[in-house]
Simulated scan of single mutants.
Amino acid sequence: MYAVDLHTHTRFFHGRRSLGDRFDPLGVRLLAWLAERRGLEGVVTTNHDYFTPFESTANVATLPGIEITTSRGHVLVIGPDPPEETEPGALTPAEAVDLAHERDCAAIVAHPFRNSTVRELEEIPFDAIEVNGKHPRSRPLVQELAESRDLPLVGGSDAHYPFEVGRAYTVVDAERLTPAALVEAIRDGRVDARVSQTRFDQLLRRGYRAIHRRKRVIDAIERPTPGVGSPPGEDSS
């Protein structure tokens, strides 16, 4: 059995590929160091629309993956040979899944209830559905969705900052922790999604909820109600 975070990022910012390439080696070292402290045996690096191979440390396997921005939301592609780069929004979910399977990778619906309508596409042969560490309270909805599609449930933190790693993770039943073995375990359903309930994680969730509530208040102040402070017929949101 291995505890693996299937959804991590090596940096906290999007875009700026050249800057990211310089920062990523440091980011992955911090990610692996904190993953080890959290008791994880592996992390899958799923940067947005690009894949960079990283060396594993002595105690934490760094496994290949990519988070593809499709026309309907995000899809995690995990396995031995993920695509090196994809154009954000250029692929449909079906095309992303086909690409994953052509390259012997698993295709996973990422955060199905946040900025995504991928979950509505019943005909696409996904391999799993994710419980995302940034909103674990959606787990009952995600679990119901997975059961309706007869798909396994996996966990990933969606960490953009190293201290977020392990907020959600996956217990993988495999003899060895390799990219191919991980894909096989996902497809066979030999995986179990977990959400960390440590005191640190509980405090972190409270802090994020407070930030998000404050952001919504600021947005409401800065964005006038339609018809109040806006030209007639104009919605400033």
Rank of each mutant, 00 (worst) to 15 (best):
E36K: 06
R22M: 11
I78D: 01
T178C: 14
A181Q: 06
V165L: 07
R194A: 15
R214I: 13
R205W: 08
V217Y: 08
G27V: 13
E130A: 04
A168Q: 04
P152I: 05
P125V: 12
P136G: 02
Y208G: 02
G156A: 02
A168P: 03
E67P: 10
T8R: 01
G227D: 00
D98L: 00
P152W: 05
R176V: 12
D173Y: 11
I186K: 03
Y2A: 02
G189F: 08
E85A: 15
D219N: 14
D158G: 14
P53R: 12
E130L: 02
F51P: 01
P25A: 12
V109T: 11
P140V: 07
T8K: 00
I124R: 05
A128H: 09
P83Q: 08
A146D: 03
T8L: 02
R137L: 02
H135I: 09
R223T: 12
V75S: 12
T57A: 09
A107Y: 01
L145Y: 12
D192Y: 13
H74M: 06
P152S: 03
D188E: 15
D192P: 04
R176E: 15
D201F: 14
D235H: 04
E122V: 04
R119Q: 08
V60P: 01
A128N: 14
K215C: 11
E123R: 12
Y208W: 06
V217F: 14
G79S: 10
Y2I: 04
R29Q: 11
A106G: 10
L121M: 15
P136Y: 06
Y169K: 13
P125D: 13
A159P: 04
E144Y: 09
F12C: 10
L76T: 13
E41L: 07
A210I: 15
T10M: 05
E36F: 02
L182H: 10
V60I: 13
A58E: 09
T86G: 00
S138H: 07
G207C: 12
I108M: 07
F163T: 09
F23E: 09
S71M: 12
P224R: 09
